[in-house]
Design a protein around this nucleic acid. Structure first.
Lengths: 257, 257
DNA sequence: GCCTCGCCCG
DNA sequence: CGGGCGAGGC
């Protein structure tokens, strides 16, 4: 099973890139974030040609998640179910061929001293509780998406400059790890313990791609039984180099199931 | 000499269409309107490959005129010189191979009861005075551009519905004809007295192109000595059918000089 | 509908 | 820088 994740920064703007990538890579599942389209405007027709099943939840202007899958999902669930903020444009769970897949667009957090950052930290706690409720560490499951955390210094260019950045501050890294420790394994880092590899390059940072000044903030994580079956994980730079590119690129992993 | 006119509705958006048209048609002169680009942002580099000389005057967001010519203009003049509103983003005169060419983007006029409409009517009067000052009916000269007038009922779909439209109202048609009568001949209508042929199809009117619900408001006019040498005039629908089309298309005329 | 713009956002 | 939005123009 081949599964991929891609923060598209507008699904409508990225349709050609997405369709091209599906054609070339034929994944079983492609999880998308920042679709930035409300459900009534979702471009189902443009995706129909791909032959993929489409599951989505969006809102106007911000956020939005979707799952494209070869097989139809056996179950679909939108947002948190803990009585708090639903945040269904950031959290989408599907079950595909028996494997639960949680696709997240974790809040970015704005600034360390903002309420948005507090919300982000809380979000990781809620996500752990969500895993507790719906998954089991001993059973196959996947968590992927734009997690907005670079877990280690290796995962961001010039880490010493980003100690107070909402995607690298010690508190957010701790919050992320606390959620991971529920029972997930970062399959990229598992296969490549020392590899410097980013998935996001800021549009604003001049020549960030050429100079490779990026962040590894998009992740695919699997529970142990599934992580053990992970055969390969790669970042495909091509979508980031496309004429009309997202600021993120595609991360994919293949599992022997 | 082959001369063409095209309201591009943003030069920058229409660059591929323009370059393609130049390649295919190799006109001596292409007059453009609604370039919507201020001079400091004019995309000279993108046009350099065409090999055409570029003369332009624009402003931010609205209006803007340009002339692309195989030969460099022997003279260039921007706007009115009667002490009133300059309107140099609507009026550009060049002399090419000895022929004065007046490229205009005549004000649209908004609504019949608006001051913009009064300004439009006045604009035609000023233009006649401008011809008087700079041209002679007995000598070759060309006036072309988006004139924003359908001269006759044949020149607009459902004319009975547009009697109070600022591009078909009796006052504007009279004002236009008063300016034409200075000494210009509409070469399209001269060659094809009865042909129904539009040059503009509103984006808003659903399926206006397919249903051919348009307007003939872009014109090429020549003084009598030149009009007598007009060999052919055509409207090229291709640019209007392009993937990213202006709401106008190209009108061109060939003169035996 | 398809352009422009200024503004918000990451 | 490159998405989104809403307003203004035609």
């Amino acid at each position: 099973m081949k599964i991929a994740t891609f923060n598209v920064n507008s699904l409508r703007k990225r349709l050609p890139v997405i369709l091209r990538w599906l054609e070339r890579h034929q994944p079983d599942v492609l999880c998308l974030q920042e679709t930035k389209v409300q459900d009534e405007d979702f471009p189902l027709l443009d995706l129909a040609s791909s032959g993929y099943q489409v599951t989505f939840r969006g809102m106007k202007a911000y956020n939005g998640v979707a799952v494209l899958s070869r097989a139809a999902p056996e179950a679909v669930s939108y947002g948190f179910d803990d009585g708090g903020e639903l945040d269904d444009a950031r959290l989408l769970r599907v079950v595909i061929k028996g494997i639960p897949i949680v696709n997240t667009y974790v809040p970015q957090g704005f600034k360390i001293d903002s309420s948005k950052y507090a919300y982000k930290l809380k979000w990781f706690q809620r996500l752990r509780a969500y895993f507790d409720k719906h998954l089991a560490p001993s059973k196959p499951a996947i968590w992927c998406g734009d997690v907005n955390v670079a877990p280690e210094p290796l995962d961001v260019h010039s880490p010493e400059k980003h100690l107070t950045h909402v995607c690298f501050h010690e508190d957010v890294r701790r919050a992320y790890k606390e959620t991971v420790s529920w029972g997930f394994v970062d399959v990229f880092r598992k296969l490549y313990p020392d590899r410097l590899q980013y998935t996001f390059w800021d549009y604003r940072q001049p020549s960030s791609v050429k100079a490779n000044k990026g962040w590894r903030i998009d992740h695919i994580l699997a529970t142990k039984p599934l992580a053990d079956k992970c055969k390969s994980v790669e970042v495909d730079m091509r979508p980031r180099r496309a004429a009309t590119a997202s600021d993120h690129t595609v991360l994919w992993a293949e599992f022997a199931i």
